[in-house]
């Protein structure tokens, strides 16, 4: 069965390139453009994996991830945060509510090479 991946990011161009890579596998890719929409789609679609950007309008990625991890049904879905390199390096000063202590599964540095993205996604889907 085709695995379902929920991609939450506010950058349409980033979404398009990432979607192209993931669909080549093929994975089924569902898209959301901010945290609240991401949470709603996660409940509706029950994806196998979630890719979550951090800085987004309406609801940022940290807050969304926190709510995902609190939801007993959704907390088991592997959640990978998409970060820009500087945010990964150290504590970030980006305007979001949470720090890095969040219990997400992994962080993916943006930009990511197609082969690395696929390898990481595969690793968590097979867990």
């Amino acid at each position: 069965m085709t695995k379902k991946i929920l991609l939450v990011d506010d950058d349409v161009d980033f979404i398009e390139s990432t979607k192209t890579v993931l669909e080549s596998k093929p994975y089924q890719v569902i898209v959301a453009y901010e945290g609240d929409e991401g949470l709603r789609k996660a409940r509706e679609e029950k994806p196998d994996l979630i890719l979550l950007d951090i800085i987004m309008p309406v609801k940022d990625g940290f807050t969304a991830a926190e709510q995902l991890k609190k939801d007993p049904e959704l907390s088991k879905i592997p959640t990978l945060m998409l970060t820009s390199y500087s945010a990964r390096r150290s504590e970030t000063s980006i305007p979001v509510s949470r720090g890095f202590s969040l219990e997400v599964d992994d962080y993916i540095d943006k930009p990511i090479r197609p082969e690395e993205l696929l390898a990481t996604v595969e690793k968590y889907l097979n867990k």
Binding site: D13, F14, K110, P111
Partner: peptide, 15 residues
């Protein structure tokens, strides 16, 4: 830049 890099890598990856 991230968006541009994404497209460049897609093209380079033959997608």
């Amino acid at each position: 830049l991230t968006a541009i890099q994404g497209f460049l890598w897609i093209m380079l990856g033959g997608y």
